[in-house]
Design a protein around this nucleic acid. Sequence first.
DNA 1: GTCTATAGGCAGATAGAC
DNA 2: GTCTATCTGCCTATAGAC
Lengths: 192, 192
Amino acid sequence: MTAITAERVLDSAQRLVQTRGFNGFSYRDIAEEIGIKSASIHYYFPSKSDLGVALVQRYRERFDAELQSITTRDQEASKRLKAFVGLFRQTLNDERLCLCGMLGAEKDGLPPAVSQQVCDFFVLCENWLTNVLKRGRKDGEVAFLGSPQTVADQFLSLLEGAMVVARSLNDPGRFDKTTNAFLRVLKPSDEA
Amino acid sequence: MTAITAERVLDSAQRLVQTRGFNGFSYRDIAEEIGIKSASIHYYFPSKSDLGVALVQRYRERFDAELQSITTRDQEASKRLKAFVGLFRQTLNDERLCLCGMLGAEKDGLPPAVSQQVCDFFVLCENWLTNVLKRGRKDGEVAFLGSPQTVADQFLSLLEGAMVVARSLNDPGRFDKTTNAFLRVLKPSDEA
DNA sequence: GTCTATAGGCAGATAGAC
DNA sequence: GTCTATCTGCCTATAGAC
């Protein structure tokens, strides 16, 4: 089946990007990992740029689906934010970085089509977070200084950075401490 | 002069790592940029791993010197923190990432000796920040929930992440909004 | 110290058999 | 769809002339 191989290529490539970066792996690495020849990969993704675009597209779509599922499942702002953190925490647990955190860093070494997609991912995150914060503040579920947009940007930046630092220091616990401290500050008055 | 060429190599290589990542440039890129042949670079840095180690070492030493200079110049915690942010902001202004933010992300695609050095950089930052926060809290210059260590980690993560996101979105202003918002929260009571 | 020349290998990519 | 075979070019790295 065509679809299955393509998915396996994407799975392998995604992990490689998340751990080594876009220029830190080759078609051969993927091929060996999934047991085919590198030429076969070109059948699905003619150029590495095509592969990169498909990678981020899938990642963003899946992430979007997760966000919608959170929005449906959790009504309280603090729960939604915690679930958002959970998405990143899960990735860190697999000893990976956020795909777009990695690619965003490598921007100038990427095919332009890929870096554009990365922007879209960040915008998606910030819009979702902004809406959660807006609504949460209106309902008195969270409290913060400044605009929801700024806090959303802050939150996203914190998560992306915390993954890099925690992974570099081989200490995932730092990610938890850091993100929990941020969530605590958002609590209205003295619920802590 | 041997020293001058070596420095020029490091300058060029540093910029390349900060914009494209460690695997996103070659000895030839450096050679063409500074007008020598790539073979000459091997005279100073036999392997790319050697180059990477020298790069982070110099970066860390310079950063350490800046931190000491800040400690001497600024006595108030808020000024020290603002100056710390300024170091990163300056890098972003050159359209670059923090060298160690980039290398920390690419960890698994790096020579092991390099990734070890990157850890040292993060530890240096966190120790300095922790001391500033400890002292600042004791003197009533800053206020925050949780331990100084956790807030230091948070701050560093925020800065590293904010650089990635701001650079990816081509909007350095985001970095300023995000970091200013964090500094504001650290102010005791209503000095804002 | 910097060069030319070159080794040896791997990269992304294509052609064409099956 | 996947393969073998191959192209072209770039990579890191070394040898040895100057």
